Simulated scan of single mutants.
Amino acid sequence: MWFRNLLIYRFTRPFSLSPEELNEQLAVKAFVSCGSQDMASIGWVSPLGKQDGELIHTSNGCIMLCCQRQEKVLPAAAVKDVLEERVQDIREGEDRAVGRKERMQMKEDIIFEMLPRAFSKSRKQFAYIDPANGWLIFDTASHKRAEEIMVLLRECIGSLPVIPLAAKNTTQHCMTSWLKTHAPTSFELGGECELIDGADESAAIKCKNQNLSSPEILNHIDGGMFVKKLSLSWTGGIDFTIDEQLTVRGLRFADLITDKTEDSQAETAAEKFDVDFAILNAELAQFIPALLSAFGGEELGTEEEVAV
Rank of each mutant, 00 (worst) to 15 (best):
F3T: 07
R4S: 13
L7E: 02
I8R: 07
F11G: 09
T12Y: 02
F15G: 08
F15S: 04
S18M: 03
S18D: 04
P19K: 01
Q25M: 14
F31G: 02
S33C: 13
S33T: 13
S36R: 13
S36K: 12
S36D: 10
D38K: 08
S41F: 01
G43I: 05
V45F: 04
V45M: 02
L48Y: 00
K50W: 07
K50T: 14
Q51D: 14
D52Q: 14
H57E: 03
C62E: 00
I63F: 00
M64N: 02
A76I: 06
A77R: 12
V79A: 08
V79M: 05
V79R: 07
V79T: 10
K80N: 11
K80I: 00
E84D: 11
R86M: 08
D89L: 11
R91C: 07
R91P: 00
E92Q: 13
E92W: 04
D95K: 06
D95A: 08
G99A: 07
K101I: 04
K101R: 14
E102C: 06
E102Y: 09
Q105E: 09
M106H: 09
M106T: 07
I111V: 15
F112P: 00
L115G: 03
P116D: 10
K121H: 09
S122G: 02
S122F: 00
K124G: 08
K124D: 03
A127N: 03
Y128D: 00
D130R: 05
P131Q: 02
N133G: 10
L136N: 03
L136Y: 04
L136H: 05
F138M: 02
H143C: 05
E148F: 08
I149A: 07
L152G: 01
S159Q: 14
S159P: 09
L160T: 10
P161Q: 11
P161A: 13
I163N: 04
L165H: 03
A166H: 11
N169R: 15
T170A: 14
Q172M: 12
H173F: 11
H173V: 14
M175P: 02
M175L: 14
T176F: 12
S177Q: 15
K180W: 05
K180N: 13
T181H: 13
A183S: 14
S186A: 10
F187I: 10
E188P: 00
E188G: 08
G190Q: 04
G191L: 07
E192S: 15
E192I: 01
C193I: 05
E194M: 11
L195R: 10
L195E: 06
G198Y: 03
A199F: 05
A199M: 07
S202H: 13
A203D: 14
A204C: 11
I205A: 11
K206H: 11
N209K: 13
L212V: 10
S213F: 00
E216F: 05
N219C: 10
G223S: 15
G224K: 04
M225F: 15
F226S: 02
F226T: 01
S233P: 05
W234Y: 12
E244V: 14
E244T: 15
Q245M: 08
V248P: 07
R252I: 10
E267G: 01
T268A: 08
E271K: 10
F273P: 00
F273C: 10
L280H: 01
L280Q: 11
A290C: 14
S293G: 09
S293L: 11
F295C: 08
F295T: 12
G296S: 12
E299P: 10
G301A: 15
T302Q: 15
E303T: 12
E304C: 10
